[in-house]
Amino acid sequence: MTAPADAPVTTDAIPTMTVTLKILRFDPDGLDGREPGTEYWEEFQIEAHATDRVLDALHMIKWEQDGTLAFRRSCAHGVCGSDAMRINARNRLACKTLLKDLNPAKPIMVEPIKGLPVEKDLIVDMEPFFASYREIMPFLMTSGPTPERERLQSPEDRERYDDTTKCILCAACTTSCPVFWTDGQYFGPQAIVGAHRFIFDSRDEGEWDRLEILNDKAGVWKCRTAFNCTEACPRGIEVTKAISEVKHALNTGEI
C-alpha cells in the first residue's frame, strides 16, 4: 500500500538551529551612505538544519534578508567550481560544506578567496587566475595527420594524470597559496595542475612547451611545498604531488 499523496510532510521532526554567519562584504558602489569601496563585516542569523550547507545559508540570507548580498554559484553540487570562498579561514566550496561540520555554535566566518581583486562581497575577479591557466596551453597538442578514430591510450598511461583531470578550476588552491598572496607573478598551483594533466598525457606532444613555461621565473620553482593547495582542493587532488612531478620532470628531463 502506498502512502496517500496528500499526507503531511513532517519536516518538523528534524530540529533546526540558529546559525550566525559573519560575512566580509565589499561595497563598490557606496549604498546606504557608505563610502564606495567600503569593506565591512556583517552578521546574519538564520534558522537552518545541521545538514544544510553554507550555500543554503547564503541563499536564505540573500532571498529572505538582504538581496544585495553578492556571491557566485551555478551547479550547487560541487561540479562547476563557482563558489569557492574562505569559510572559517579555509578555502572551500560553499555548496560542499555542511553547517554541522563547522561548529555552528560559533559565528561562521565567510570571506572572499584571497589574492584576487574583490569586485563585490564574495565575488572576485577571476581573470588573473584564468590568464595563468591559458598560458600553460590547456589543449591537446599533436603533430601529424588527425587520426580517423579516437586516440587510444593504455589504462596505465591514463592513470598517470588521472588525478589532475578532476580539476574544476575553482581557484581554492591558488588562492590558498602564500606565495600567490605575496608574489604578484606566480602562476599558482592550479595552472601547474592544468599543465600536469597534459604533460603526463601520452597522447599529447606539447609537454616541453609547457614545461619550458613552468620552468620560467614565475613557474614551479616559486612553490615552497607549503601543502595549502592540497588541503584546500575540494576535489581531493594531490596538488603538491602534481607540482613535485613537474619539478622532477624538469630536473631529470624525463616524463
Binding site: 616541453w208 612547451d209 619550458e212 620553482w221 616559486k222 624538469l250 630536473n251 628531463g253
Partner: peptide, 27 residues
C-alpha cells in the same frame, strides 16, 4: 581541420635553455 589555427610543431626533448634556468639551480 580547415580554419584551425596554425600550430608550430611541439618541442621534442629537453632544451639547453630548459636545463640552464637559474631558478631551477637555486631550488
Amino acid at each position: 581541420m580547415t580554419g584551425a589555427p596554425e600550430l608550430k610543431a611541439p618541442k621534442k626533448a629537453v632544451s639547453h635553455s630548459t636545463l640552464g634556468r637559474a631558478q631551477r639551480w637555486s631550488w
